[in-house]
Write a protein that binds this DNA or RNA. Structure first.
Length: 423
RNA sequence: GUGGAUGUAGCUCAGUCGGCUAGAGCGCCAGGUUGUGGCCCUGGAGGUCGGGGGUUCAAGUCCCCUCAUUCACCCCA
């Protein structure tokens, strides 16, 4: 045997035993999205690197150290997408969706890639579901998108979630706040942790969510973003709050919620599910009014969020109605000697054509072993085909659950299995 | 990038103070029943003890290095 090749760090094989659960969760996501009138969009897995450096931000962790960037054979710099919003913005412009009816409401499900050190709930290849609403700056949209997110969680049985909400203002008022914060922190620079001293020069807002104790103490007296919000941003935030409350939703205003992507404006939010442990944010999102323009399109606002499906699935499995993810086989066709293998294949194929989930032995095993296999597939029924029955044009149908068995004419087999399956 | 934990059969794990040919349960294959699954019984296959080096008469066990996995920090989904 040659040396074994293992999967790359931070990736996962999804085996048949679990893909059923994924399909179930994905189906819920699609159904709810369509009900909210979001349509699926599929964009490339890789994009020009600049798409992300321009929108996500040069100083963010994602761009600084987490991107899978490579040169193709023609020397172009490409990047495996680390997130889904910028590609949607690009596609929106490139396909002229801004010239069609607004708003544009889309969702996606697909793999994202970030070069991080893996741990529980964090992978280098992970799957995100995302919903994006472009073309309106109304807080109604923020509210709808957040409601959609919570609706997904509730439908999947995740009721103990907490919604964290904040406003980071527009570029205008954020600049004022940034100055004030930089000034305040600059005066206390010596007491900040190493990380925060570095952040101070590059991206001072990031100091806000530092967990270091002394940094937190310093931040307690720091100026608050809320005092610097312009009239428009303030009104937007307050209206959103009223809308959420009106929909019966509870949320926590969390001034430390900053989010690690530069394109966010005004609303940012996160939904956490504490039982998950360290990586307990199952979804996050916000408003991005400058994104489309930054990509060379018209000035079009947008708002959206993304769910990490691995985390969502971990939570759902710990939650109230975990997906079972395995469907029983309807019928396993057994044959008594090799000469009848062809007959078994024919019966199985006829059942399949009739819509019955059917299989038969392909290893030439003993009848006993075939029955065992039928058990392993959790088949509801076994069909036994022996020489005597074959000669008489019948086969034995056995209920694997109840143990009874009876003869059925071969030409009636589809009909019989279909009606048995109804029970 | 930093720190901790763990690497023994397909899976979950025992393996004492360094000492025979490295074990169990589950799973897999076969037989017990020449045409019948689950339960039970019997047998079988399956291991470079992550890899490399060192100490020793002797290493799964001790030491060093390395790789991988995992958890946490950072950050995020």
């Amino acid at each position: 045997m040659s040396a074994m090749i293992s999967r790359p760090k931070g990736t996962e094989d999804r085996l048949p035993a679990e893909t059923g659960k994924w399909l179930q969760v994905e189906k819920v996501l699609r159904d709810i999205s369509e009900r909210f009138n979001y349509r699926e969009i599929r964009t490339p897995i890789f994009e020009h690197t600049e798409l992300f450096t321009r929108t996500v931000g040069e100083t963010t962790d994602i761009v600084e150290k987490e991107m899978y960037t490579f040169k193709d054979r023609a020397g172009r710099s490409l990047t495996l997408r680390p997130e889904g919003t910028a590609p949607v913005g690009r596609a929106y412009i490139e396909n002229g969706l801004h010239s069609g009816p607004q708003p544009v409401k889309v969702y996606y499900i697909g793999p994202m890639f970030r070069y991080e050190k893996p741990q529980a709930g964090r992978y280098r290849e992970f799957v995100q579901y995302g919903a994006e609403l472009l073309g309106s700056s109304s807080p109604l949209c923020d509210a709808e998108v957040i409601f959609l997110a919570i609706e997904i969680c509730n439908t999947l049985g995740l009721t103990e979630t907490t919604l964290h909400l904040n406003s980071i203002g527009c570029p205008g008022c954020r600049e004022g706040y940034r100055k004030a914060l930089t000034e305040y922190l600059g005066a206390r620079e010596a007491d900040l942790c190493d990380d925060c001293r570095r952040r101070l020069g590059r991206n001072p807002l990031r100091v806000l969510d530092c967990k270091n104790e002394t940094c937190r103490a310093i931040l307690a007296g720091a100026p608050s973003m809320f005092d610097y919000l312009c009239a428009g941003c303030k009104e937007h935030f307050e209206t959103l709050g009223k809308l959420l409350t009106g929909m019966g939703m509870t949320y926590r205003i969390d001034p430390s919620l900053v989010r690690g992507l530069d394109y966010y404006t005004r609303t940012v939010f996160e939904v956490k599910w504490p039982p998950l442990g360290a990586q307990d944010a199952i979804l996050g999102g916000g408003r991005y009014d400058g994104l489309v323009e930054a990509l060379g399109g018209p000035s079009v606002p947008g708002v959206g969020f993304a769910i990490g499906l691995e985390r969502l699935l971990m939570a759902v499995e710990k939650g109230k109605n975990p997906p079972q993810g395995w469907e029983r086989l309807d019928c396993f066709v057994c044959y008594v000697d090799d000469a009848l293998a062809c007959g078994a294949l024919e019966i199985a194929n006829r059942l399949r054509a009739a819509g019955v989930r059917a299989d038969f032995d392909q290893l030439g095993r003993s009848l006993k072993a075939q029955m065992k296999q039928a058990s392993r597939y959790e088949a509801r029924y076994a069909v036994l085909l022996g020489p005597e029955e074959a000669a008489r044009g019948v086969a034995t149908v056995r209920s694997m659950d109840e143990g009874w068995q009876r003869e059925v004419r071969l030409e009636r087999m589809e009909e019989e299995m279909l009606s048995l399956r109804q029970r």
